[in-house]
Design a protein around this nucleic acid. Structure first.
Lengths: 213, 213
DNA sequence: GTCGCTTGCATTGTTGACAATCCAGGCGAC
DNA sequence: GTCGCCTGGATTGTCAACAATGCAAGCGAC
């Protein structure tokens, strides 16, 4: 198992929440588990540190990054303008027919059941489709990379925010509005609506603060 | 010389433009130059790769990152919304008296000579003061880190854009407007003006494309 | 001349052993 | 009992030697 595979593997597990924040990630143990060398694990952890997914304390060890609440609010501020930018660029670059798949996915009554019953995985998959489509149509590699790096850090919280009462319905309605603006090619409105969507997420982050952390 | 010192040292030189893009950075040669070990250089280069300042080609070597023009336009799109965000947050968080130093620095006729005579270093120092002040007053660590990482990648071009005819005067006028809005605490206007400032920089990037690369 | 092969060099990649560091637990002085 | 010291174990950090890789120059066949 090469260093990059180890990094990918660990990243998956970290994003899924398999490791509890603050728990230790000893190089030798991981190397044994994954059937690889300590160095491969080591450089993978080094890379994950630069993504802020783990924290390395010199001569002590590596621990899973803790979610700092104030920092998460800051992350959402940044995400707001960047996701808004992505929506704007996508609206500018795309043709109406580029949106058909997304339109169908978010068509009336298509996702209402998932939202009402709290089917997180289905709903998350839909939101991810939105993201992937927008980022692809925005056609900006640098923005895509930047967003990916930031979203990694907010990934765990995102799931929990969606689990707060009524969030899926709220988010669903907001995304339907956004997509409508995107299809119309109304870049300014799409940006505005996406930023609004991030703002409402951020409000919940603050409101349910004690439950989410 | 420890790995982090090597990284800092190389970063300085890369940002100053000491190495021509595409030139090679052999681990052994650098280690000898800096009086350190190959390992220290190696991990420094690894870290610089994640900042996109150098490019590492497996089994071949490390080269100074080339400036890809399309990518730089994308970077400026992202910088536009993030610097705008920083200005907005700073205007929201700061008191009028927080701006006195910046006001004095950008006071009428203070920087006009530097702009007119093309004194890049003086002018850059002033712009850096603006940045530092805004980022400090915005008081958001995450935004500061994100911006720092991105600005590193655009640093070389920034100097060249300022050298295009009339840019310093243009930028000076724009910054005076921005600062005026900041002092008034007009967050929306400050954001708008800073974004405008980045847009005019981006226009020059495009206009002088062939000269800048 | 040019194509393909080979050989040598420069460079990075990997490995294993050893050094440095930190932390916890135990032990003794008071 | 508590404070301070010390020691053992766990973990990361460093190093030097060796392996693997890729590139370019040189050489020969045609």
């Amino acid at each position: 198992m090469k260093s990059e595979e180890v990094e990918l593997h660990l990243r998956e597990r970290l994003l899924r929440g398999d490791f509890t924040p603050g728990s230790r990630l000893p190089e030798v143990k991981l190397a044994a588990e994954l059937g690889t060398t300590r160095n491969a694990v080591r450089s993978a952890l080094l890379a994950l540190e630069s993504r802020k997914l783990v924290e390395r304390i010199p001569n002590v060890g590596t621990v899973v990054a803790k979610v700092d609440f104030d920092r998460l609010e800051e992350i959402y501020d940044v995400l707001e303008v960047l996701e808004g930018l992505a929506a704007r660029l996508a609206a500018q670059h795309a043709e109406p027919r580029d949106w058909t798949a997304l339109q169908e996915l978010f068509a009336p009554s298509r996702l209402d059941d998932a939202a009402a019953s709290g089917d997180l995985e289905t709903f998350l998959a839909a939101i991810d489709s939105y993201r992937d489509t927008v980022i692809r149509l925005a056609d900006q590699d640098f923005l895509a990379e930047t967003l990916a790096g930031i979203q990694d850090q907010a990934h765990l919280l995102r799931r929990r925010i969606l689990m707060t009462p009524g969030r899926m319905e709220e988010s669903l309605a907001e995304h339907r509005d956004i997509i409508e603006a995107l299809v119309r090619g109304d870049a300014g409105r799409a940006e505005e609506l996406k930023r609004h969507n991030m703002k409402t997420a951020r409000k919940r982050l603050r409101r349910y603060r004690d439950f989410l952390v």
